[in-house]
Design a protein around this nucleic acid. Structure first.
Lengths: 158, 158
DNA sequence: TCCCATAGTGTATAGTTATTCATTTATGTT
DNA sequence: AACATAAATGAATAACTATACACTATGGGA
């Protein structure tokens, strides 16, 4: 069952990094990653992920993740938040992020804003964040999700 | 030829005011306004208007106009700008808006921000704005467009 | 263990949208 | 006006996407 989350993550990855104009195309890209399934399932996945199909400047339509508004200042806020990240550990299926003092709320807020399906919720203190993953979501999935939210974390994790 | 702009305006009107989930539905709504045409043309119009089809919170997909961000404060700015409007006249296919002293830039900026296809560009002085409409766009089309951008103008025009 | 309920999936197909082709309509030029 | 050219449109259809149905796997309870 871990397969589905893998698929969903891959879909987000692909859509956020390149233009995809239909499901057949996306299906092929997923095949290259070793993920084989059908158009029907993909359609359902896209609906689940709330992916939109938007105008590519009048030249056709492409898929886009929701909440990609990226308001001005958003990137700076991300960079700031990521700087406060210290480490992540897992225990009893729960993730525990340690941050510099005072940084926990801002990092948790980044996660909550994205509202990834892999993470049911977060609980932030001053320098600690508790991550509550969905059932059947692996530690690796959680980490990948965090990196997707805050790409700067890639160097800091593992 | 004024018919096409009429259609395009109507489409924007409908989409901005209610949920529409497919072209057949939109076609019927347009019929009620006395605009009869086919799905093929509608598909082309939507592409032209860069209309997106976005997730309706996971429950299906609906059409949405581009640039509907409407940041906080936007409405107040519109009200302010509209207050400075004095009159509009046409000469040689060009529109000339007179405003209270100092208001021209803010009104012109409202127009430019919306970037309506009916208007190629604007030129603002201190109390005068030159509106350069697209070829084949009538005075009425320009006025309707302006009202769509700044609804408060409705009472001030004509 | 054996049901039952639930979620996930593929196949086939229904539903929806874009495009090709033919035709008409508008525009510009002499 | 007469012609050439470009733009707009509808009908038919191709291309694309969503869903009904059947089936399977999984995870509780009894």
């Amino acid at each position: 069952m871990g397969n589905r989350t893998e698929r969903l993550l891959a879909i987000r990855n692909i859509i956020s990094s390149q233009k995809v104009s239909n499901q057949e195309e996306l299906l092929e890209l997923l095949e290259k990653k070793g993920l084989n399934y059908t158009q029907a399932t993909l359609s359902r996945d896209l609906k689940f992920l709330k992916v939109n199909k938007i105008s590519d400047r009048g030249r056709g339509y492409i898929y886009e993740l929701p909440d990609q508004h990226h308001l001005p200042g958003q990137e700076m806020a991300e960079t700031y938040a990521a700087q406060g990240f210290v480490s992540i550990q897992f225990a009893n299926k729960l993730g525990v992020i340690k941050t510099l003092p005072g940084y926990a709320p801002s990092i948790a807020s980044m996660i909550d804003k994205t509202n990834p399906f892999e993470i049911v919720g977060t609980l932030a203190g001053d320098d600690t964040i508790l991550i509550i993953p969905h059932d059947n979501v692996s530690e690796k999935d959680v980490i990948n999700t965090l990196i997707m939210i805050l790409p700067e974390l890639k160097d800091k994790i593992k």
